[in-house]
Design a protein around this nucleic acid. Structure first.
Lengths: 148, 148
DNA sequence: CTGGTTGCAAATCATTTGCAGACAA
DNA sequence: TTGTCTGCAAATGATTTGCAACCAG
């Protein structure tokens, strides 16, 4: 599948949830599967649509509740795609990273540079978190961008 | 006043709006004044409350519409404070910058470091915009932070 | 069995919009 | 005068929540 990580398989993920005391419902499995197969970050709406195909009858709020669970467990990360709705992505290796978001096709790509690689942080301030997203046009969309 | 910039006075700002063809209504003046007097980024709600004090009867949607106008003109900038609602700040000198947001008191501080100062950007991607915000605890709140 | 989960419907919350009257230039 | 603005009220869209039924372990 398209998941770019190599740390944990889908069964391992389910095992992990289980070990943490969460039940493996059809809805949860379907969501994990969808996240696993996604080749880039997806919005709750997009995830919901895909989950629905795999497991008809699933409710939108169930998807949201499970995204919350996965987020708490650190299994997914939230991406600020610059739109009103967040995007979500599986992050099984748990490595810190940021994203590039294409303004044309909406696709996201993982970014390995972090501002704190090159900067020690602001003085007189205890940093606990940060957000860094880059918006622009990916290789396949950039010709379009030049016309702007 | 608390505005930290030195590029443009409040009357100059009004003049600027006027020159751009915008009318100087009481509501607009009140909003500009509130933004001018603010010592850090404020949410639409906070701005609205303050505008209301100066100009009773002003409607929330008027505040939003004017924030949109000011944003289009590049007179204010939006800050992602990590909460559901955005924060707004006057940015009369128009200089690009980011923000530090205190998780305890909610105050924001301008940051002069930009990730692109130390990085050339992702390959095969045309960057048109980016977002960088740092969350943590400011000097007066960090003792509290240590107790966490 | 039994508490974690779900479906459903209604509630939030920030922000936006249609419209008719009001007002700056 | 006239087109921009405003107040009002209702709509939007993402996300959340209360509650009773349901089902994984």
């Amino acid at each position: 599948m398209a998941a770019s990580n190599t740390m944990m398989s889908l069964p391992k993920l389910e095992e992990y949830l289980s070990a943490k005391g969460y039940r493996l419902t059809d809805q949860r499995r379907a969501l994990l599967q969808v996240l696993w197969e996604a080749d880039c970050c997806l919005t709750a709406q997009e995830l919901y649509t895909r989950v629905l195909a795999a497991r008809p009858g699933t409710n939108f709020s169930t998807v949201y509740r499970n995204l919350e669970v996965l987020n708490q467990l650190g299994v997914i990360c939230l991406v600020d795609n610059g739109q009103q709705a967040h995007a979500f992505e599986l992050n099984v290796d748990g490595a810190h990273h940021h994203h590039i978001v294409c303004r044309s096709c909406g696709r996201t790509r993982r970014l390995d540079f972090c501002p704190f690689d090159a900067w020690s942080g602001p003085e007189g301030f205890v940093c606990v978190e940060h957000k860094f997203e880059v918006y622009g046009y990916c290789e396949s969309c950039s010709p379009k961008a030049r016309k702007r």
